[in-house]
Design a binder for these strands. Sequence first.
DNA 1: TAATATATGGACCGGCGGTCAAGTTTGTCT
DNA 2: AGACAAACTTGACCGCCGGTCCATATATTA
Lengths: 204, 204
Amino acid sequence: MERRERADAARNRRAILAAAEELLREHPPEEVSVERVALAAGVGKGTVFHRFGSRVGLMQELMSERAHTLEQAVVEGPPPLGPGAPARERLVAFLDAVVAMATRSAGLIAAHEHARLTQKAGGGTRLANPIYVSWHRHVSALIAEARPDVDAELAGHVLLGTLHTEPISSLLHAGESARVAATLGDLARGLLGDAGGPLKAGGG
Amino acid sequence: MERRERADAARNRRAILAAAEELLREHPPEEVSVERVALAAGVGKGTVFHRFGSRVGLMQELMSERAHTLEQAVVEGPPPLGPGAPARERLVAFLDAVVAMATRSAGLIAAHEHARLTQKAGGGTRLANPIYVSWHRHVSALIAEARPDVDAELAGHVLLGTLHTEPISSLLHAGESARVAATLGDLARGLLGDAGGPLKAGGG
DNA sequence: TAATATATGGACCGGCGGTCAAGTTTGTCT
DNA sequence: AGACAAACTTGACCGCCGGTCCATATATTA
């Protein structure tokens, strides 16, 4: 049987995550070094690396926290997000939800991207991020279900990857998330061959 | 009247660009430091910074070189890339061309992204990259022309920004550019309300 | 309380992008 | 040709980064 995490360790883990969250809320990612996070959390730099392995690991842990609720809503929540609705509606609902989450976490997403690109070992692709993988699986499954003839895997990357992109990310940060959600919806509906085209929803 | 660039300076500039190009062809971006480029070019590190200002500046210069021919084809070349064809066809042709260029420059694009995110001054958004700006202007103008009701600016960012994204970029590197071009075409046609939907072109 | 597994912290490492003052080369003018 | 100024080159140097290491401190268990 596994030993539980020690109490002080758990306390520090929470302190580190909270400090990182706050720093990312108020500073651009490249100004939030691991050392600063450690300082703000009141722990040593080594402790952060011991807990999270690397800068990337820390960012991924933060993202996991936030993604958890969305994950649950998708697998067992009510339609249109959860099972039961037609694929096209589920896809649009999911994109809306992801955009909403990305809006709340704009700085974090940028920081994660920043960390991924600056890490020492070059092998870390985005496909090593379990959250991205699970979201992409969901999106491409929905696309494939509605349109078996399109390249669902790739279209999924386009729709999701966009949120990691700098122009979009800064738009989210500026409060324009409605536009982003609308445009992603237009693209998704267009791809899935919605009757009436993107006009109806895009104008809102 | 402006003085011309000195002969030795011009020689060094070309040596630096050539060395950077070669290194990026054979190594992942995070292994190509400015110092290594300088070493490979047979010049001092300070010279690189003197010529190009920063790592980002160097990468942008490389991209500018490659983008030049495409730029010309767009403004004065024959249709469907150049003026004369309907917006929808010009858009698809342009996306094809951009994908082709991105395929040839996959390492460079990644390196530019890498440089952008690791630079000291945090102010450098992608919108400071003149090539991206001009391409985006072109794409969104075409979208707006064909579909005044959609958010052309944003849709343009989605279609173009995708190429800077890691899953797509690695696919390009792996020789799957046809899939990428097809999917972008599907999305573009879907958004623009192509009769018949994405089926026709996406299946190839 | 004694023993043991676990957690801690900060000095340390190699390497990065970027700076700069001092030295060298080039083009120009007489 | 010679002399002069402007342009160019250079590499030691700076501050900082992500990551490592291990002597020390602490929580847990018996």
